[in-house]
Design a protein around this nucleic acid. Sequence first.
DNA 1: GTTAGCATGTAAGGAGTTACATGATTTT
DNA 2: AAAATCATGTAACTCCTTACATGCTAAC
Lengths: 217, 217
Amino acid sequence: MSRRSGILEFAVLGLLRESPMHGYELRKRLNTSLGVFRAFSYGSLYPCLKTLVQRGWLVEETSGQPEAESGTAQPAPLGGRRARIVYRLTAEGKEHFEDLLSQTGPDAWEDEHFGIRFAFFGQTSRDVRMRVLEGRRSRLEERLARMRASLARTRERLDDYTLELQRHGMESVEREVRWLSELIESERSGGRRSRPTEHESADPAHGAPGPSEDTDK
Amino acid sequence: MSRRSGILEFAVLGLLRESPMHGYELRKRLNTSLGVFRAFSYGSLYPCLKTLVQRGWLVEETSGQPEAESGTAQPAPLGGRRARIVYRLTAEGKEHFEDLLSQTGPDAWEDEHFGIRFAFFGQTSRDVRMRVLEGRRSRLEERLARMRASLARTRERLDDYTLELQRHGMESVEREVRWLSELIESERSGGRRSRPTEHESADPAHGAPGPSEDTDK
DNA sequence: GTTAGCATGTAAGGAGTTACATGATTTT
DNA sequence: AAAATCATGTAACTCCTTACATGCTAAC
């Protein structure tokens, strides 16, 4: 029970790996650095932090003030700002996160997970990065094939708007495939390339967040 | 209570408006015509159908065979294929769906709803279409502005991959904005992508899409 | 004669949201 | 002194999925 996949959990561990933080700050980071995609609410964040503590991946540190010289450790931070609970990644937590980072199962390139995986590519080994990028690409290519097939079958019967929606959807996926191909190429040839900086012109652009999910099971 | 948003419900009513269908077929249509986005499972579809029947928006028709001349109506369709339950939209259901179609609240242009709304644009009046398209566009423009602001603030501190992710995300949104602009232009000038025809007096008097929620509060 | 696809469901649960509740601190 | 924003949490609920359970019919 409790497979706890949760992209929130992953993101929290990843952010705390960089530095300890309290909930409120964490939430803001989730919605800027990573949160291009999703905005998480406190209603999910705080409970998540609790369970991570229970599993020993995080520890709470009730810090009244940064430089509290007073002997009394946790209970009464009377004097500083409201007792903020700072969460710090434990050694086990770090280990666990690295396990997660190294996983290359199909989950890693599903719509919901791919973004967050990519966001932590800086912490990910090259071969894992490659597998994830390639996995995602072939995922999207499959999807594209299905879309084309289905479109070919039903084209006549669809009205203009439905057609336009399909067309736009496919274009978005095609774009993302091209983007992935560029990234893969760039990884293959040694990485860290300074991208062809903005010329504001015909840059071979990239994909859209094609609304999610697959057709069939 | 019971805000009953549910994009599934909307999609089911919309598809059944075209013609009656049984669950299995419905599910397939959801995953081809509309389902570029999402694949719904039977586990949500069948219960949804049930509740729609309870509300009087659908009626079940247990049809053993198309031309069952036999007097016994429902109970025993022994002879045809397995008793498929065909769902038909009632007058009330139709009315309800048209109510939904005419709604132009912020929900209509949220990520999850916009796709399905667009898919039924063929059934939607022009002014509603315009409001939804413009609402969506200004939604995305807000988002873009926030992304740019946040990027400007944090650019230095982000690693290459995070940066690339942000860049790609923004580009996708920009693309969708352009797409919407084209559609809006095309709607304004009389529709069906033929010719540019007359534009009416440039009055942007649309029910202004207010600054709506996303990241922070 | 067995696999593949048609067809309908239910129970449990996952992953998150909203609304509520509370209070401190900073800015206006 | 009011408003914004910082900060933490809980309970109820939503919407959907997975896994299970069942059985028929068509094709190989």
